[in-house]
Write a protein that binds this DNA or RNA. Structure first.
Lengths: 355, 355
DNA sequence: CGCTGTTGGTAACGCGCGTTACTTGTTGAA
DNA sequence: TTCAACAAGTAACGCGCGTTACCAACAGCG
C-alpha cells in the first residue's frame, strides 16, 4: 500500500515521518521545526529557514501526531459527548450542530453512546462506562445530550471536567444546560392560530407531566390570555405521542361537538400526533386548513415537510442547541464563569400550509 | 471542583494521577503497575502485590491515559469514519451500527463530518480535510459512509490505512465496500405482492439511473419472471423521490386505466413516495390494502411505522452495514486479506398492514 | 575596547506509558 | 557444595512532541 509510483504528482506520504525526519531533511534542529509548525510568535526563525522547513514538511508529507502533541502540551482539543441519540436518532441534529461548531473551533468531538436507561436511571456502574471512556481519552469537556427534554442525573465523574447538558437539565440543578424554550414555542403557535382568526382551538396534548407538555401548554395559555381568552379544559385531550394517539385524540375532539361548536384549529403538541390528526380530519371529509387548521410541534422533517398539505409547525432548535452547547463548553474550559444554569433557545415557527 | 468531601463513599478522583503515583502508593515500581494493568501473561507478579496494586488504583482513582498509551504502544485502537450522514441523517443507523460494533471491540470511533460535495466530487483540497484530521489522530482504519447508495471517490491519503466503504462503493473499484442488496430487496418485495395474489403491479420508480433504482427494478423483474410474468413498461412511472413525486406518479398510474385494468398493487421504490401514493389512493376513495396494496422501500421508520395503515416495506440494513463495516475493517487491520470487493447485505421485508 | 541587546537558533527535559533487558533471591537437582 | 532454573520484580529506553533554558554571533553604543 502507498507504493511510490514514480512520476506521481501528489507528494508520496511515508508512514511514520516524524519531526525529527523533517529536521534532518531541512538541516535544522527538531526544535526549530516545532517552532515553525506551531507558529510561535516570540520564536526567532529567519524567513529563509522557515520556508526551508515548510518545504521539507511538504516533500516528506509530514503529518503531526495529534496524540503526542496532546501528551506534551497537556491539552487534547477534544470534547466528548455522551448521548442516547445514536440509539434513538430523533434529535440527531444536536450532534450535527455540536460537530459543526467543534469543527469550526478546530476541536474533535468524541461521540460515545449511552443506553437510555443509563442516562436517566440511578443505576450506577454501567452508567458511567461511556463517561469513563471519554475521560480516559482526556477530553477537556463533556456534553450530555438527550433525545427529549427532561431531567437527568449525570455520573459523578463528570465533575472532573467542565460539563454542559443539551436538551436536558441536571435534576440536581448543579450543571449548566441548554434547553428549548417550550413555553415560547407554545405561545408562538397559538399566536399564529389567533392571528388566522381562530378562537376556538383544540389542543392535542402529550403526557401532561413532561417538561415539553407543561411548557407548551403554559405558552398556549399565555397567548390566549393576551387575546382575552381562556383555554377551555374540555378542548385539551391527551394521548400517546404517536400517530395513532393523535388520531384517536382528534376523533374525540371532532366528534364531541355539533358542527358550529367544533374547534376550527388543532394545536398538536408534536408532529406525529398531527400526522394522525390529519387522517381523522380527512376521514370526516374536512379540509386542511379550510375547515380545520393544524399546527404541530417538533418539526420532524420527514413528517412535517411531507404531509399533505405540508404541516406548519414549531421547530425544536436541535442544531442550535448543539452548537450553543459546544460554545458554552468552550467558554467554560477557557475559564469563564457559568452564564446561566439554564439557557433557553428559541423555538421558531415554520410556516407551511396547514394554517 | 472535585473537592474531597470527607466521609464520601465514592473514591475521590484526583486529577492527574499517573502510574507513578500508583506505584509509589503501592510501594512497587511503575513497571509492575504497568504489567498488572495490562494483564501481561508472561510477567511474573505475585498475587499479593497484584492485589496491592489494584487496591492502590482504586484508592487513588487512577485512570489510564489513552493518548500516552497509544503513543507508547503504537496502536491507537481508534477507527475513523468520514460521513455526510451527520449532515443528512437519513442513514444515521449506519453510525449506530458502527458505533456499537466498535464499542464491543473496545475501540473508539472518531466521527468526522464531510460535506456531501466533498465526498462525491473530485474537488481536491477541502475534500481531504476530514480524512487528514483523522489520520493526524493516528486512526488505524478508515470508514466512509454515504447517505445513499452510490459510487464515490475517496481521497488519496485513505490508502495509508485500511479503508472500507459503507453504503457506497469505490468508483475506482479498489476498495472493499458494504452495500445493500438492492436486487434482493426488489425481488422480495414483488414476491410478497405476487404471494398476495397481485399480478398487475405498478411501479413508482426513482431516478432510473441510480444504483438503488437499477437494482430494485431488476429484482422486481426477476420475481415476475419466476412467476412467468413480465414487467409492463407502461406500469413503471418515475418521479421525484418525494411525497409529492409519489403522489403525482400514483395519480398518473391510477387514472390511466379503467377500473378493471387498474393495477391492484403499487411497488414504491421508497417510503416517501409511498406516503404520497397513500394520499392519491385515499383521495380516490380506495382502501389500502383492500383495493390497492402498497409496498415501500427504505423503512424510514418515521414514515413507514406511522402511516395509516402502517406501511409494509423493505428495510435498508443500515445498522447491519455499519457493524459489518467495522468488522471488515477489524479483519483488515488484523492483516487478513480482503474477502470481497463488494459485500451485499440483505434487505429484509418488514410486514406491516399495507399488503 | 568592553558592554548590552537582539537575532537565530540548539540541547535537554518531561508528558504518561509500553517494553526490553537486566538483577536479585530462592529452590531443587547433581 | 555448586550451579541451573525459575520467580518476582526493577532500571532504563523510547514513542513524538512542546517547552524552557541556554548559547553563539553580531550590531550598536559609549
Amino acid at each position: 500500500m502507498a507504493k511510490s509510483t514514480p512520476g506521481e504528482a501528489v507528494p508520496v506520504r511515508q508512514r511514520g515521518v516524524t519531526m525529527k525526519d523533517v529536521a534532518k531533511h531541512a538541516g535544522v534542529s527538531r526544535t526549530a521545526v516545532s517552532f515553525v509548525l506551531s507558529n510561535r510568535e516570540n520564536a526567532s526563525i529567519s524567513e529563509e529557514t522557515r520556508t526551508r522547513i515548510n518545504r521539507a514538511v511538504q516533500e516528506l508529507g509530514y503529518r503531526p501526531n495529534a496524540g503526542a502533541r496532546a501528551l506534551a502540551s497537556r491539552r487534547s482539543d477534544w470534547y466528548g459527548i455522551v448521548t442516547e441519540i445514536v440509539t434513538a436518532p430523533f434529535a440527531v441534529n444536536i450532534i450535527k450542530g455540536a460537530q459543526d461548531q467543534a469543527w469550526l473551533d478546530r476541536r474533535f468531538l468524541l461521540i460515545a453512546p449511552s443506553d437510555q436507561a443509563d442516562a436517566v436511571g440511578p443505576n450506577q456502574g454501567l452508567e458511567d462506562a461511556a463517561t469513563e471512556k471519554l475521560l480516559e481519552q482526556r477530553v477537556e469537556g463533556l456534553l450530555y445530550a438527550a433525545t427529549f427534554h427532561r431531567g437527568v442525573h449525570v455520573p459523578a465523574s463528570a465533575n472532573e471536567v467542565p460539563t454542559v447538558l443539551i436538551n436536558c437539565f441536571d435534576a440536581d440543578g448543579k450543571l449548566p444546560s441548554i434547553v428549548p424554550d417550550e413555553r415560547g414555542g407554545g405561545r408562538i403557535a397559538v399566536e399564529r392560530l389567533l392571528q388566522a382568526g381562530h378562537t376556538r382551538i383544540g389542543v392535542i396534548n402529550l403526557d401532561p407531566v413532561i417538561p415539553a407538555a407543561v411548557g407548551r401548554l403554559e405558552g398556549a395559555r399565555e397567548a390566549l390570555a393576551v387575546a382575552g381568552l381562556e383555554l377551555d379544559p374540555e378542548l385539551v385531550v391527551s394521548g400517546y405521542a404517536t400517530a395513532d394517539g393523535g388520531y384517536e385524540a382528534a376523533c374525540r375532539i371532532l366528534d364531541r361537538y355539533p358542527r358550529q361548536d367544533r374547534p376550527t384549529a388543532l394545536f398538536c403538541l408534536n408532529d406525529r400526533m398531527a400526522m394522525g390528526a390529519y387522517d381523522a380530519i380527512k376521514e370526516r371529509g374536512l379540509t386542511i386548513p379550510g375547515d380545520i387548521a393544524v399546527i404541530g410541534f417538533d418539526n420532524q422533517e420527514l413528517i412535517a415537510a411531507y404531509l399533505r398539505p405540508k404541516l406548519t409547525t414549531v421547530a425544536l432548535p436541535f442544531e442550535k442547541m448543539g452548537a450553543l452547547g459546544v460554545q458554552t463548553l468552550a467558554a467554560l474550559t477557557a475559564g469563564q464563569p457559568i452564564i446561566a444554569d439554564q439557557q433557553l433557545v428559541d423555538c421558531p415557527l415554520l410556516e407551511r400550509s396547514s394554517v
